[in-house]
Simulated scan of single mutants.
Amino acid sequence: MAEYGFYHLTRTPMEQALPKLLGRVLAGGGRAMVRLASTERLEALDAALWTCPDPDWLPHGTPRSGNAPLQPIWLTTEDAGPEGAPNGARFLFLLEGVESARIEAFDRVLDLFDGGDEDSVIAARQRWKAAKAAGHVLAYWQQGPRGWEKKA
């Protein structure tokens, strides 16, 4: 079972929080797949990651740029295939309320949701219940004054 973490954004928007989390994955030698809800958001995130100041280098690719196996970070609107992420990622980031039918293909899932959007919070609670019922190890993280704080 995957370790499934819910990341409650309360202090910074996703565009600021995500790069730091991705940087941690890369610093640990990992690979990530980031799943978004729309092509427009994917293209905006693609551009933002190339100009991100912290960390200043987040090598990544998209279906448009291709070469998934060579990409440490893969941005997509598609779910992982039966064999997992096309770039061999063991970390799955779910943004904008998207879900995955291939959670078992990953060691860790990071579900980021906007705490300022009540619909997003309600949907995250539903995803939590479904992940718990599926037997995943769950963790809840919330942004605090000194960064991410794990809550009980």
Rank of each mutant, 00 (worst) to 15 (best):
L26G: 02
W128A: 11
F106A: 07
P13T: 13
D117S: 10
L18I: 08
R125G: 10
R90P: 00
L112Y: 09
A44W: 04
G116Q: 13
L36E: 01
G23N: 14
E96H: 15
A133D: 13
A124T: 04
G116D: 13
L75P: 05
N67R: 11
S38D: 10
E118Y: 00
T77E: 10
A44N: 01
L22G: 00
W50P: 02
G88K: 07
P59K: 05
A139G: 15
Q143T: 08
A101I: 07
T10V: 11
A139S: 14
G23D: 06
H60E: 03
V137T: 05
L110Q: 12
G84E: 06
G29P: 13
G135K: 09
D107P: 03
A80N: 07
E83W: 03
L110K: 08
D111F: 06
F113T: 03
S65Y: 01
P63S: 09
S120C: 10
I122G: 09
F106N: 08
A139E: 05
L21R: 10
P63G: 10
A27L: 09
L22S: 00
G147S: 12
F113I: 10
A130F: 08
N67H: 08
S38A: 14
G61F: 03
G116P: 00
D117N: 12
G84S: 09
L95H: 08
F6K: 13
V137D: 02
D79W: 09
L18P: 00
V121P: 14
W50M: 02
I73T: 07
L49K: 00
Q16M: 09
E15C: 07
D46W: 07
W57Y: 14
P63R: 06
G135F: 04
L75M: 12
L42S: 02
W141N: 12
L95I: 03
G61D: 00
W148L: 15
C52A: 13
D111N: 14
